[in-house]
């Protein structure tokens, strides 16, 4: 009695599943470090346009950021891309929410000063703020 129901539903949901997986894949790809357009009221920090990369050679566990790249467009900070020291998923993923949080804050305020450090991840927060400040200093040249 249920065989035809099962077959039809499995086909239908199988197609839906494939669609959801593809959508999730592309949504995930964009969710990492997207470029942020500055809001209309944001004061222009007046930086030099271009990409400014700060690299760290330290490999201590509470200094997980290997490289930070700041992108400036029309004087505005529009993107910050972070690379981690290792490909270890644990430290990578433990740090990602912290970095995303600080990054969003920095892009909104167009500054590396007065960032709210994430509790439980002060090492990461500090390194991010220092690296970003160094990149901004480069852009001020």
């Amino acid at each position: 009695m249920h065989k035809s129901v099962k077959k039809n539903m499995n086909i239908g949901f199988g197609i839906a599943a494939a669609g959801v997986m593809v959508a999730s894949y592309f949504a995930a790809g964009q969710s990492q470090f997207p470029t942020v357009e500055p809001g209309p009221d944001t004061p222009n920090p007046g930086l030099a346009d271009g990409e400014f990369t700060i690299t760290n050679d330290e490999t201590a566990q509470n200094r997980p950021i290997r490289a930070l790249t700041l992108t400036v467009d029309n004087g505005y900070m529009v993107n910050i891309v972070v690379e981690y020291n290792d490909e270890n998923r644990m430290s990578h993923n433990l740090n990602t929410p912290t970095v995303l949080q600080l990054r969003a804050e920095a892009l909104e305020e167009q500054s590396a000063e007065d960032l709210d450090f994430v509790s439980g991840a002060t090492g990461t927060s500090q390194q991010f703020a220092e690296s970003l400040q160094a990149a901004i200093d480069q852009a001020r040249g």
């Binding site: 995930a28 969710s31 990492q32 998923r89 644990m90 990578h92 993923n93 433990l94 990602t96 929410p97 995303l100 949080q101 969003a104």
Partner: peptide, 9 residues
């Protein structure tokens, strides 16, 4: 869980 840690919290 790594999957829960790739977004802005």
């Amino acid at each position: 869980g790594a999957s829960f840690r790739t977004e802005v919290p």
